[in-house]
Design a protein around this nucleic acid. Structure first.
Lengths: 211, 211, 211, 211
DNA sequence: TATGAATGAGTCTTCATTCAT
DNA sequence: CATGAATGAAGACTCATTCAT
């Protein structure tokens, strides 16, 4: 009678809880053994539920991995959405600060659990054609997000007026993914910082002294 | 011992030939239906051989995909090795020309068969942990290759003297992979050229006018 | 103790009502999808009750199909019982009239809902050995009923004095079942009438002119 | 080199043999426990083969029961086809003799193994809607066969000229099925003979003395 | 050497039934 | 008394791999 403001009964809440637990445990299993090597029974056993129970919450094995991916994408997107919007920026200095904040946020989310990047960027696409498409779509969406920031910069004038925002956005995201994957192989903060610096250097200075 | 200088008999040659055909057909199947959805019998049937024969050439299903990947990586590496070595370059202009040649070579190899990128960059990592490691190693190797070019540029002096060559190499490769994946989604020459131009712009100019 | 003369409370009546509804809905489901393809949950869902409730009214899945069959048999028997008893007949003409009335009654009951014949005569026997026995017993009972009519006719004298009443009864019922099944395949009134006429012809004239 | 006149190798023959054995064993199992209560593993175990082997010979469980039914129907049809054709008859006496031969043949086939009738006439229709349709079609085909005999009789003149051959054929077949089912319940030769006699009586004399 | 028949471990999935709420 | 969440037995089916021919 305190926080229970909604008509959601205790049973309903319990159900949502278990649903969430299944998604999380499924992610644990998939990340540990891979999607194909994971049996529904494994997930259920680790949760301590009957494997028939699983099917009360998800249609089938494909359904759960879809939800796992949705969950991961949402987590990443949420971490980005927390950062300022493109319009909040009006100079290159501010843009750099914002980009750094975004980079930090990504570092935090992917650094918090290396399995997120490993599963979302490396394994998911191998599940089946549909999932591969989802992963590519996710990257497209991310590119559009980045393009938004660039577009604003071009309009306000602190970025090259003739910048190809869409293609550049994809390229920048490619660097970010490279950084995330590099962190997977070499999870030392130093090398993460080096990647981050190298990307900034590329973005703002290029690799060569100018003529 | 006719034209055959080596003791490799005709039978031996035939064996190597079939081995190669199996690898190629396996790639066809994996690319079409995915690794897990492909049965050894599918590969054998498509080749018109008994599926018992398959096991005379490869240990098991895992073995063949390993060879398929090796083959793909070799094809990509070979296309790069054809380009001049880092030492052949002594100015930024020459570096840019060389980088463009390399980019063209990659465009040719990945453009010739979109399945190469799709399988090598998207699906392979989802097969199992070991394969994921191989894919990451491949990317590390590629980064070292790129780093070699950058390193030479720093030494000769046409690149920033304080460039973090390893991190920058990874970042550049990230952009290249992004371009290859973008070409998968949108295989129009125009957008491939746009990606290429955007990467060059980033590398040599950065995204913003300099102070 | 208002209008209820019996100690059956309103709750008790409600219970009987639901019991009946379950039987009817179960028949609907069985007839539509077959016994084995019907889940208890299907029946409950169609009725809008929880499937746990089902088990307050019937022991198990087998129990309900037994009641469904009992119900169908009762409906058929009731439709026959409404016709005159064997003793009410004292001449061949009256017998023929009575037989026609019985045939009409059967036509009405089976014609009213083709699922009755389909389930009772075709599907029920496939459920399990016990049910198969029940179906055969039902046919035996029906044969005895028919035999009763024939027996009376022999005794009174309007039927062949040496008629093998039991065997003939089974044969006649076989023709009736054939007619019912024919109506299933070809539910046109004309062909039903033709079957009916053909049976009468056989019973009273045989198929050939007499010597 | 002796009886092996066809290019059918020994392996091919062995395969056909096993195929046949599976059909027979499947029939054994279905007849004993019913279709739904029989697992593929049961059939395989009884045959002493791995259950994977089963699937080398038949698509799935449904496929095997289809073949079992086909086999049973063929056996029945073969037993009938052995009898003379309708055209071989030119008088009522010959017709009666032929009908008796057919009846004997049916008695032999169904009497040889009561499971044939039980499965074909009682259980098969309960498997699923498609099988029910097949059973009804089989009965229709049988009716057409019978109708052929009657039609000939009408044309030649030893049967009623205004006989409704199709409807009468269905009615006669109904009696035959009734006899077969009666034999299932009461497999004494005497009662089989009684059923047979009763049917003949009905067919040729009707049940009542003529006016 | 090539073959493909045989195998059975392994997985998903369904559903009748129970029982705590 | 009604409910529906939980359960796990059961079964269909696939496919990598082996091995006799």
């Amino acid at each position: 009678m305190t926080t229970d403001s909604l008509p959601a009964s205790r049973a309903e809440r319990r159900k949502q809880e278990l649903r969430r637990e299944i998604i999380e445990t499924a992610f644990d299993c998939f990340a540990e053994r891979g999607y194909h090597a994971t049996a529904i029974a494994d997930i259920a056993a680790r949760l301590g539920i009957g494997h028939g129970t699983f099917y009360r919450y998800f249609q089938n094995k494909r359904d759960i991995v879809d939800h796992v991916i949705t969950d991961l994408i949402e987590r990443v997107v949420a971490s980005l959405a927390a950062e300022n919007a493109p319009e909040a920026v009006s100079s290159l200095a501010e843009y750099r600060a914002q980009a750094e904040r975004i980079g930090d946020a990504l570092g935090r989310i992917f650094g918090s659990d290396p399995r997120i990047a490993r599963f979302l960027l490396l394994e998911a696409a191998g599940i089946d054609a549909e999932m591969r498409e989802r992963v590519l779509e996710f990257q497209s969406t991310a590119a559009q997000l980045t393009a938004g920031y660039l577009h604003h910069g071009v309009q306000v004038g602190y970025l090259h007026s003739d910048l190809d925002v869409d293609a550049t956005a994809r390229a920048i995201n490619g660097m970010i993914i490279a950084a995330v994957l590099a962190a997977l192989c070499d999870p030392v903060p130093t090398s993460q910082e080096r990647m981050s610096a190298a990307i900034r250097r590329l973005m703002y200075d290029g690799i060569a002294p100018r003529a």
